[in-house]
Each structure stands twice: as structure tokens, then as C-alpha cells.
């Protein structure tokens, strides 16, 4: 009887969790305060980012954009307040590492070839063999990065590294991607390639949250922008640019 009750509770909890996951926004932040060495680095009363949305974080250097992205990805803590990812608290959220990836302004690729990087990221998700090969092939085709596949990761240009890092996240199964200044310090060709890359992700329904100083990127890509000032979310215009 006791075992049945425990099993029923587990089934009920799973159902509640699944329901929460199905209907919840990608991120829901409330009364968040993050301090770095006792100084408030980020403070946000309320912020929601819905699934499939593309949101730009704007503001001057040191305003808290990158810190907020890292907080949303669970890379920083502890903090006061609450962050939910897909309806569940961020801490020990089983979905966070399966579905969300943060990409640095200057991303890190591991030693070896680009293909090795994809394989390693998939191995971390316990995807191996034929399934891994299939996912890599699909990602390569989707983002037209075939010529980069056998290249040494350490020898790629900044733009190529950025594209591989985003593609690696997608191959690993992420559908919520957080990017820190994805087009900064890039020439116009690399910037355009990244822009096309992100537009393709947006079209496919991937949730994108990125920080930027590039107004044209906000106009081209973001459905909404959130402005940061001295660590605070100071306003949240309801609409952004167009596709």
C-alpha cells in the first residue's frame, strides 16, 4: 500500500511538473538581487521571457547585462529572490542543462577539431555513436558549417568560433540560448554570418536572449529589448524591431 502511495505521489508530481513545464515561460524572474562582494550587481523586480521569444539586453558596459545572462543560466549565485526556468526553480532544475546554453562573448572551444567539439558536447549529454553522428550531420547542414568540421578549433576566426559555439549548443539539444554580445569585435562579414545564424534559430522557435550594444542587431532580431542601468532593469519596452 505504502509503495503504491509513493508511486502515485511520484506520478502526480511528474504530472504537475510536466504541466508547469508545458505552460510556463522560459524564464520568470522575481525580486532578484545578486551581490558581488557586497555590492549589488543585478537587481530586478520582475522579468518574464516567453518561449520562442528573442530578447535583447541593452545598456552600457558594467550595467549588469552579462551578469543577468549568467544568472539565468545558473552560472552565478547565490542570489536573493527567485528565478524559474520552464516553470521550475533554477536551482537543481533538471531541464536547465539539457535545454539551455550560455555562449560567451569570446566562446571557448575545446582542443581538437570542430567535430571533436560537437562529439564532446554530445557525449556530455550521453549521446554517442550513430545518434551523435546524425545530430552533427543535421547541425552542419542546417548552419552550412561543413567546411569547418575538420578544422582545428583553436585556429578558427572569432566569427567562426562564435558560429561553432552556437551550433555546438544547438547540436547538444539546447532550445534556449543565451548569448553575450554575439557580434562584438567582428568584421561586417562575420557579423552578418552570425546574424543569419541567429535569424535561422529565431525562425525555428529557439528562445534567444542576448546582450548587445549593436542597435541594428536589436532592430533586426529582437522582438523585445530590456534596458539595464547600473545593475537595474530600468525599463522594458513592449516591442522591439522587425524581422
Amino acid at each position: 500500500m505504502h509503495a503504491d502511495a509513493v508511486r502515485n505521489d511520484a506520478v502526480r508530481n511528474d504530472a504537475v511538473r510536466n504541466d508547469a513545464v508545458r505552460n510556463a515561460p522560459a524564464f520568470s524572474v522575481s525580486r532578484l538581487t545578486f551581490r558581488y562582494e557586497r555590492k549589488v550587481a543585478v537587481s530586478c523586480d520582475s522579468l518574464e521571457i516567453h518561449r520562442g521569444e528573442t530578447v535583447a539586453f541593452t545598456g552600457s558596459n558594467g550595467s549588469g547585462k552579462t551578469t543577468m545572462l549568467k544568472l539565468l543560466n545558473g552560472l552565478l549565485g547565490p542570489y536573493d529572490g527567485r528565478i524559474d526556468f520552464l516553470g521550475l526553480p533554477l536551482a537543481r532544475n533538471p531541464l536547465l542543462r539539457d535545454r539551455s546554453v550560455f555562449v560567451h562573448q569570446h566562446p571557448v572551444l575545446f582542443s581538437g577539431t570542430v567535430k571533436d567539439n560537437f562529439e564532446y558536447a554530445l557525449r556530455l549529454k550521453r549521446v554517442r555513436g550513430a545518434e551523435a553522428a546524425k545530430r552533427i550531420a543535421m547541425t552542419v547542414e542546417r548552419f552550412s558549417i561543413g567546411p569547418l568540421l575538420e578544422r582545428e578549433a583553436g585556429r578558427l576566426s572569432g566569427g567562426e568560433t562564435q558560429r561553432v559555439a552556437v551550433a555546438r549548443a544547438v547540436a547538444a539539444g539546447a532550445d534556449v540560448i543565451l548569448l553575450d554580445e554575439p557580434t562584438s569585435s567582428m568584421d561586417s562579414a562575420s557579423g552578418s554570418a552570425i546574424r543569419a545564424f541567429l535569424l535561422e534559430l529565431r525562425r525555428s522557435g529557439t528562445t534567444l536572449v542576448f546582450s548587445t550594444h549593436d542597435a541594428s542587431l536589436v532592430l533586426d532580431l529582437a522582438g523585445r529589448s530590456v534596458r539595464f542601468e547600473s545593475g537595474r532593469v530600468v525599463d522594458e519596452p513592449s516591442t522591439g524591431g522587425t524581422l
Partner: peptide, 21 residues
């Protein structure tokens, strides 16, 4: 470089994997 550990973490590397890496 702190980005190395953050990259492993964000890609879902479990603690022992991160330690080895």
C-alpha cells in the same frame, strides 16, 4: 580562464567530468 569551467557547466558536464576536464 574562468570561461573554460563555465563552458563545461553550461554544456551540462557533470561534476566528475568537469573535474577531469
Amino acid at each position: 580562464d574562468p570561461r573554460y569551467n563555465e563552458t563545461l557547466l553550461t554544456l551540462g558536464a557533470r561534476p566528475w567530468r568537469r573535474m577531469i576536464a
